[in-house]
Design a protein around this nucleic acid. Structure first.
Lengths: 208, 208
DNA sequence: CATTATATGTGTACGGTGTAAACATATCTT
DNA sequence: AAGATATGTTTACACCGTACACATATAATG
């Protein structure tokens, strides 16, 4: 779950107990767990602190505020998604098979990080530097989709509106993810796994 | 914007000013606007009250709590959508034409009522009896989709997994609506109208 | 009509929240 | 050794949802 990410700096900062996980990481780990289990809004800074045995205010030495703490998890998630996407694209198979694998990867990734998804894709951000950062990193993921579409078109020898097709794919994956995430706890979805497959198949049928 | 809905009871309740909008409706209108603009969690009952000039506790005379107020807006959304869906389904044409018209209606309805959409579909409700009531009324909208799918299958003489197909359609429309609503201000969408048509065409192609 | 019941508003209070500010100490630098 | 810096705690504040007690305006009933 933690989505392996290389730490920017490996220096050991002053902690009374040696060889202890840095508090910054403990906080993020605890927050991710609590957010995922109980939802961002219902988890208080006080509870995060008490879970790892530090005062609530200690968190603010490492994260500007609660939202930045979540955003940090968010970026971690995004980087992780791009990473698994790149791995997926390297696996063998036809262009279509690889594209469909990528789509599955995207959906699964979102479903396994619902809180990140909610904050990143279901929150209307007022235009500003934060929103631009989000769009920018989102584009890096879109690049992978565009490449996949382009490869499919090339392999099949057809012309495709790459940008439009990629957007349609994105929209479809977004639909599955957001619907399942917002309603999965209450709504009787009929075989969500099969639905996922059907949607993916449907929106990529032009490349069959 | 308020989505015309027939009031269950037309009686005029005691209000000092005559011919005034009932407080219950004022509350819902204000809440819908604030929820959509700033998000359910960040809008306080105090702010809703102060926006319409009543005390926070006055709201509790009309809605049991904040969550019930949210549910009321969701119900309003679904009722409006069911209404336009029923009107659309009565128009002439083949089953496929009518289904596609319904899908366009759904998307257009959401895009022209973004506040209702955000509140109803982009707000995660904690599991509980209130959320179940939301699911129940949502099913009444799904019934219309299921009927449209069934008619298409019958007309084409093919067997279709009605429930699954309806869910796929729902998911796809949800994807378009939520993406356009959440990102339209920041993201360079390429011809959203055409994308809508392409998505609708794609997910109903099996009935061509 | 007088009276009671009900519907609908307000004010206050409680336990929760995120976090600013001041302070304490442990570690690093010089 | 001494000062600077990093990292923790304590306290305090403004705000939150809402329970509770109270006021009043309308409806129902004798």
């Amino acid at each position: 779950m933690p989505i392996a990410i290389k730490r920017a700096s490996g220096i050991r900062r002053g902690n009374s107990r040696r060889s202890h996980v840095p508090l910054r990481d403990q906080i993020r780990d605890a927050a991710r767990d609590l957010f995922a289990r109980e939802g961002y809004e219902s988890v208080s800074m006080r509870r995060i602190g008490s879970k790892i045995g530090c005062s609530p205010m200690a968190i603010y030495r490492h994260y500007e505020n609660k939202e930045e703490l979540l955003l940090s998890i968010c970026e971690e998630t995004f980087s992780g998604m791009i990473q698994v996407l790149d791995e997926t694209r390297l696996q063998p198979g036809t262009a279509l098979e690889r594209l469909r694998r990528s789509l599955r990867t995207i959906v699964d990734f979102h479903l396994s990080h619902p809180n990140h998804y909610k904050v990143t894709f279901m929150t209307v951000m007022p235009p500003g530097p934060v929103a631009e950062r989000k769009v920018a990193i989102g584009q890096r993921a879109m690049d992978r989709l565009r490449a996949g579409v382009r490869e499919c078109a090339t392999e099949k020898g057809i012309e495709a509106d790459v940008e439009m097709t990629a957007q349609v794919l994105r929209v479809a994956m977004h639909g599955i993810a957001s619907m399942l995430i917002t309603t999965s706890q209450c709504y009787p979805w009929k075989e969500p796994e099969r639905m996922k497959e059907i949607v993916i198949e449907t929106v990529t049928r032009q490349f069959e």
